[in-house]
Design a protein around this nucleic acid. Structure first.
Lengths: 137, 137
DNA sequence: TTTCATACTTACCTTTCTGTACGTACTTAC
DNA sequence: GTAAGTACGTACAGAAAGGTAAGTATGAAA
């Protein structure tokens, strides 16, 4: 059984690497991992929900994001947390209580995600129309 | 065409369906399919590359998007074409020649995608720094 | 007293994704 | 003459994603 990898192995690269902008078109660029987390099936929806700045509990997120399983939500939140996009605060109480919020970095990402998501929702009728018109051919 | 055959059901559906905005938070909403295509591993990169408005040949895209296999690029382009985001023009010549462009709808989507991709590339150093700082804990 | 809710984790298994390899029909370059 | 490029389609297989079910400690509600 293998453990889920949250972040790639740490290389001892320093200044040069840290300061350089990622290049998504290069297969080897680790920025692809970040894109993967953000654009993952549940990552997009999670960021979308948190984008309004509200603090949400795990169970709240689970209810808001229709269809996520607990397993996947937990995994997605861990990815986003590891990337520094979401903040996790756990209270050590008996019925567990954990709160999630976006970090400043996460807010930025979430805004881009929301813009895309909004576009999809708004433009969906157009896409659907295209689907329908293709059926006739 | 077969539209007539489907008329009763289709007719009752059309208005509601065409005019309604998608709801990505609902598991059953078909707009999730569109999001899936756009945010798919190669979908994002394909839209990114086409975003500059240039017409690209299949092989060009393959070279620009480092790491895609022919199979996946073809599949991705078919999804985007079916959704009305990209335009495919095939010339019936012997060594195949096919050109891809964004449709107006696709341009809109691509702009949102590019904004997100740009953010990822620019903010990647921050994420990386977060990865590194976590290693110490 | 039994049940439920919380925030996960883990094991197990199914579904989906993705890469590799091969075929094609013909032209151009070497 | 031979190899390479073009834009795919298809079959096969391994990898990854994702769902389901079960377990946990405990307080609160029924």
């Amino acid at each position: 059984m293998k453990k889920d990898v949250l972040a790639p192995a740490a290389e001892a690269f320093t200044l040069t690497e840290k300061l350089q902008r990622g290049d998504l078109l290069s297969a080897a660029c680790p920025s692809r991992t970040v894109l993967k987390h953000i654009t993952s099936r549940w990552g997009v929806l999670t960021l979308m929900v948190l984008e309004d700045g509200q603090t949400r509990r795990f169970s709240e997120l689970r209810r808001l994001i229709d269809g996520v399983s607990e397993r996947m939500l937990a995994q997605t939140l861990q990815w986003l947390e590891a990337d520094g996009l979401v903040n996790r605060v756990a209270y050590d109480v008996v019925p567990p209580h954990v709160e999630y919020t976006l970090t400043p970095l996460g807010q930025q990402a979430a805004q881009k995600v929301r813009a895309l998501a909004d576009w999809v929702e708004v433009s969906f009728p157009d896409v659907q129309q295209h689907w329908n018109s293709k059926l006739a051919s």
